[in-house]
Amino acid sequence: MTQLALCVMLVSEIGCNRDGLVICYVVIPPPDQQWGIKLPNDTWTGMMGQLDRQEVDMALGPFTMTPQRASVCDFSVPLHHENFAIITPRPKLQSDVLGFIKPFTVQVWLLILTSLLSVATAMGCVVWAEGKIFRHSEKNIVARAFLWVFCTVTQESSHWLPKKDGSRIIVSFWLLASLVFMSSYSGILTAMLTLPRVTVTIDSLADLVSQSALPWRLETGAAILTYLKESKEEVHQKAYRNMGPTIYALLRERQAVAEGKIAVICDETSMKKAMDLDFSTTGQCHLYIAQGKVMTNAMMSLAFRKNSKYLVQANHRVRILLESGLWHKWIGKQVANSSHCLRHPRLDRREGIQPLNLESFTGPVLILLTGATVSLLVFLCEHLSHLYVQPPKSTA
């Protein structure tokens, strides 16, 4: 793991004492390959278990500092603060079936529909009243008024116009309003087609536990396991109860995450290293770190056996590395290629102008097919009524 490799470099620094002599050390991996959590029988797993049983003098990590772990080990000076989040497959640009109605909100669409009905009704009433006053008749006034209002909204021409000034004033103001409506709609729709939509379905722990399509995993023996288990928040409890089998490390499972098989909850430094390796090998970004954090500002440090004689010297070396900026420089080098993939997926762009595919027009095509189906049904009803419902014969 990224930080584990950095801690090996750190141990090399600690291994030199003040007299310039080198202290030899042997790396003893834990049999179960875990960080270490406390079991119900008060024993510990992983590297924490090795410290508790005094099998080793120190444990590489760095480890999340918790009161429970501090009962069996002594922590060094904190190396840095870490956030725990969720890493998922990277959301991709996709077409939206209902994209053609997205330029306006539901409230705006309802107001436009209300305006259409109101103007058509008002125009029909005024034309009818003008016919009574000026003694001229108009056939199908209501149908013509509604059809004319609909044609103007869709920017279609109409041969019918009211004959008198009162109704023509309504026509003038409606033409101006419909011009504003449709110009705004066409402009926003053009912009939305130019900038395809990216939907991020999992951007927090609440999003993760509320879905069932993507299972999630945690690293074996990590402190985040205990944190979720002991938390009183329902979302944390649900995340712990419904998680799948634990994994050894994210870096071993990064391909499974990229392929959309699992999501992983772990520290962000490991996530950035997974992104770094993915981008370095493929030249593309296949991973995404959710914006919502699961745990924040966890202090990370080395762990030593209780009352270890190496702790004072280790703290001295750690402070030197932190004050000189070497530790953060080392981390930066390990995850240098992750910066390109840390930007939000909505900023991902294809090269050049992409032609619209059939999926982009799915919504309008469905409306067209629905209209054709309804018109066919109406035609069949008219035809059947003409065949079986005969008008009464007139008697001489």
Rank of each mutant, 00 (worst) to 15 (best):
A59E: 10
Q155G: 13
E234F: 00
W216Q: 05
E55M: 07
G131H: 06
L311D: 07
R254E: 04
R252M: 11
P162L: 11
L113D: 14
V374A: 14
R197M: 01
H286Y: 06
R197L: 02
F84N: 05
P391R: 15
R305H: 05
C285Q: 01
T43W: 00
I23V: 15
L208K: 03
S338D: 06
D19V: 07
I320H: 04
T370K: 05
Q291A: 14
V180Y: 11
S210V: 00
I247W: 00
T45Q: 01
N17A: 05
L10R: 02
S115K: 09
V198S: 03
I169A: 15
K238A: 00
L250D: 00
K229A: 15
N17T: 10
S308M: 01
S385I: 11
A5T: 11
A274Q: 06
G371T: 09
V257M: 07
Q211N: 08
G99L: 00
L6R: 01
V77H: 10
I367Y: 06
R69S: 08
A298Y: 02
G131C: 01
L225V: 12
E82Y: 03
V374R: 09
Q390M: 04
T121S: 15
D74Y: 07
A191D: 08
H340M: 10
D348F: 05
V72F: 07
M65N: 09
T362F: 08
D278S: 08
T190W: 08
D165A: 15
V8N: 10
G99F: 01
P30I: 10
M300A: 14
G61T: 09
K139Y: 03
C285Y: 04
L21V: 04
I262T: 14
F75R: 07
S12Y: 05
C341I: 01
A5W: 10
D278L: 02
R343V: 03
F173Y: 09
T45E: 02
E253T: 04
K273S: 11
L98M: 15
W216V: 06
A249F: 06
F63H: 15
L251T: 11
S157G: 15
M295W: 03
M271V: 08
P89E: 11
R53V: 02
E259N: 15
R135N: 12
I247V: 09
S172G: 14
G36S: 03
V378P: 00
K38R: 08
N17E: 03
G15V: 00
A396Q: 11
I262K: 04
C381V: 10
Y227N: 06
M9D: 11
V198H: 07
T88S: 13
E82P: 01
Y310E: 02
L251R: 12
K309H: 09
V27A: 12
L384F: 14
W109E: 03
S338K: 03
L147T: 13
L176P: 04
K272P: 00
G283K: 02
G292N: 06
K393T: 07
G292R: 04
H328C: 07
P31V: 10
E234A: 10
D42E: 10
L161K: 11
P103I: 01
L205T: 01
M9W: 04
L111M: 13
M47R: 05
G49F: 00
G363A: 13
Q334L: 04
T121D: 12
Y185R: 09
L4G: 13
L387S: 10
G187E: 06
T226K: 05
D267S: 14
L377D: 11
F361D: 07
T362P: 00
A239E: 00
P29A: 07
L322E: 05
R197Q: 07
L21H: 07
